[in-house]
Design a protein around this nucleic acid. Sequence first.
DNA 1: GCTTGACCTTGCCCTTGGGGCAAGGTTCTA
DNA 2: TAGAACCTTGCCCCAAGGGCAAGGTCAAGC
Lengths: 135, 135
Amino acid sequence: MLTVGRVAKQTGLSPKAVRLYEAHGLIDPPERTPAGYRTYTDKALPELHFIRQAQTLGLSLKEIKRILDLQRQGQQPCELVTSLLDQHLDEIDRRIADLQGLRQTLQAARDRADQAAGRGEPGVICHIIESTQDG
Amino acid sequence: MLTVGRVAKQTGLSPKAVRLYEAHGLIDPPERTPAGYRTYTDKALPELHFIRQAQTLGLSLKEIKRILDLQRQGQQPCELVTSLLDQHLDEIDRRIADLQGLRQTLQAARDRADQAAGRGEPGVICHIIESTQDG
DNA sequence: GCTTGACCTTGCCCTTGGGGCAAGGTTCTA
DNA sequence: TAGAACCTTGCCCCAAGGGCAAGGTCAAGC
């Protein structure tokens, strides 16, 4: 019997994640045994693999659902995918730039820490942080 | 009267954030009017400014609380701050590297999208995503 | 046949740092 | 004195699950 634990193992997901995708409508609810156990068919595996790969690309469950919904309506989702990838590329570039700015600010604070070491400059709480230029 | 809204405005925070910091023990609970309104003294402003600047550096509320707790015990928190800054620098470098790796993966997928445009390659759901190498 | 361990079910609380809303009380201003 | 603008607490929400609890079920070995 292809239980949730087995499909999870085969797709590298956790059982909880698989149930979550079902609850959020990314995958169809599977049949149940009389006792209530989810029983999957092999058809579920490619979808779960797809979800995992889309997550690897940084797509959110909501975005992945949009892709899968389109596909279930018989449409080619590739146009949507392309646009999502473009959006994410922009977003990632922004985040990298933000982090690099933060890194500079942080390094500046760290440098102040070394310069002031032992010199015992006061500051109301801690001069290292208080001399930080606000972003 | 220095209400929560006023200290919030003066420190660039939201009233809700100020109450949150109090609930999490970052700042001392202020006096209350008979009606229950929080009434701050000017002494609260530098602490709130400090919290804001520490957040600018990417420190979490929990980490900021550790710093403030040390300081309230009369100790110099600068050693802790230095170590936290070092940790965060490492963490940021990791995150930047991760994002750059993700960017490459994403760009590769995007390139496939262009190459396959119009060529109509099938894929069970969408070949652009399905050809992604798992991380 | 029975036990035992591994699995399944749902449901709830936790994470971060607040945002938004509701219902109601208070203070200030025209 | 009315209304605007503020304050109070409390609850639910975000993302993507992790962890735990209480209880039901299945398969293997004896």
